[in-house]
Amino acid sequence: MWGSGILKGFAITMRNMFRGPITVMYPEQKLTLPERARWAVAPRYDAEGRPKCTACLICVNECPDHVLNLEVSKSEDGAKHIDRYVYEVGACMMCGLCVEACPFDAIEMSHEYELATRDHGDLVRVLLRDVDAASTRRAKGGDDA
């Protein structure tokens, strides 16, 4: 019938009126994120609280945005030492490729989504600073610990 679409539209909006708002009052109320939501990259730690990163640089090479950077030094016995693990969260597109690429499960996509800052400098984060890199064997569950 001519005009039935209009009536249908009216019915839909009236039904909405009785359904009540679906707005989540954001700063006061928050939705729980789905488990696989991808937000800022964060390092992972082992049971003793040491970072699991081995400084293999795979993530650094993998990142399409070039926002990860590892400053690594080597001690005399050849063990790697992480001076700084720098992450430019402001330029990260949360693609998760770094996490997928990491063979040691040393980083994760966290659920931290409130990323706005007042200071531009805060958009560059140092994830790890001045720690020994996990040795490859230990990270793989080896017996050298």
Partner: peptide, 11 residues
């Protein structure tokens, strides 16, 4: 308008 569109409107 807010309620018709499932919103709250001014609050």
């Amino acid at each position: 308008l807010g309620r018709l569109h499932l919103r709250i409107g001014p609050n």
